[in-house]
């Protein structure tokens, strides 16, 4: 059993448009050629991927209102076990515009999410402690809604480590920085909003490897960092590797990072080494980036992309 935690789930609405026509007349209207609606948030995307790979998992987090109900229903329809805490307000709706020819630069409008009161956090921790004793891995990912302390991932990592359950953290800013001293099993810094993460610069591959080695020396098992869209750098005690996806035809980058982690985790659960698992994860990310789907979960489609993933030891 794997636990995924999404503190700030969302309904993700994606519109494909021909042209971003903000300068067309006084009241520009952009007609979508296609739209797509899904339950989202990092942990939920990972949960959906795992469920479609036949891996049992529990999705945890905070949900509210009608959008929360829609998130819960969609997650449950995937066969995922839900363990959400209900709060007052409304779960986020995040809107993304994908302009034809500019799919690498999606335009996103994200909401903050409902405020989470202290008693809801307390209830979450009670449910988390119950669930984590049965878990094989824990995935923590995404932004924190208002009211959730920056030490949230630190506390969840600590509770899992106490029970010897490996934790994957995919976050940015102080949420990640606080979690690092708890030595998660795998850290994937979220570099979407910038390459300065948790007090470290992750701009060049050299910087990434240096920071990764530093974190690994502090007791983190593995560090995985996306670099220049088509590269992922994996740093462990055994070494550092540059995984590159070649000849990628981008259509939708939105779920690629979540596919990377979910693919890696699913391959690990099925017995692959971390390096091989990361290669599978990167194939999942590449397949997702080449598809209009948020996250590609068709194993055959992912395996077809595997030859595009090249590994170089650094």
């Amino acid at each position: 059993m794997i636990i995924t935690v999404t503190p700030n789930p969302a309904i993700d609405k994606i519109y494909w448009i021909e042209r971003l026509a903000l300068d067309d007349g006084e009241l520009p209207v952009m007609r979508a050629t296609r739209s797509y609606l899904t339950a989202g948030g990092k942990g939920i995307n990972v949960s959906i991927f795992l469920a479609r790979m036949g891996i049992e998992n529990i999705a945890m987090g905070f949900i509210a209102g009608e959008t929360g109900r829609a998130v819960e229903r969609r997650v449950r329809d995937e066969g995922i076990t839900t363990s959400f805490i209900w709060v007052e307000g409304e779960t986020r709706t995040n809107v993304t515009l994908l302009e034809r020819g500019h799919e690498q630069r999606p335009i996103q409008i994200t909401e903050q999410g409902p405020p989470i009161p202290p008693e809801a956090i307390k209830r979450f921790l009670t449910q988390y402690k119950r669930a984590v004793s049965r878990a094989r891995y824990v995935f923590l990912g995404g932004s924190l809604p208002p009211g959730v302390p920056e030490t949230f991932y630190q506390e969840l990592t600590h509770l899992a480590q106490q029970r010897h359950v490996p934790v994957i953290v995919n976050a940015a800013g102080k949420a990640l920085m606080h979690a690092l001293p708890e030595k998660p099993w795998l850290v994937k810094p979220d570099t979407r909003q910038g390459t300065d993460v948790a007090g470290a610069s992750l701009k060049t591959s050299q910087e990434i490897v240096e920071v990764g080695r530093e974190w690994v020396a502090q007791g983190i098992e593995a560090v995985l960092v996306s670099h220049h869209i088509t590269h992922d750098l994996l740093i462990t005690r055994e070494g550092a590797w540059d995984l590159e996806a070649r000849d990628v035809q981008f259509k939708n980058l939105l779920g690629a990072e979540d596919a990377l982690i979910a693919g890696t985790l699913s391959a690990m659960v099925q017995g692959a080494s971390l390096l091989e698992a990361t290669r599978f994860g990167m194939a999942a990310a590449t397949a997702s980036a080449e598809s209009e789907e948020l996250v590609v979960t068709d194993r055959m489609a992912i395996e077809r992309v595997l030859p595009k993933i090249h590994i170089e030891q650094l």
């Binding site: 109900r69 449950r76 076990t81 839900t82 363990s83 959400f84 209900w86 709060v87 007052e88 669930a131």
Partner: peptide
């Protein structure tokens, strides 16, 4: 089955339970 783990704890108060019922349906 419905794979949902929503549950209460013995120490929960009546007020908290009513809130849980109200929000979750």
């Amino acid at each position: 089955m419905t794979k949902d783990l929503t549950a209460a704890e013995p120490s929960m108060t009546v007020r908290e339970l009513i809130e849980l019922f109200y929000r979750s349906g």
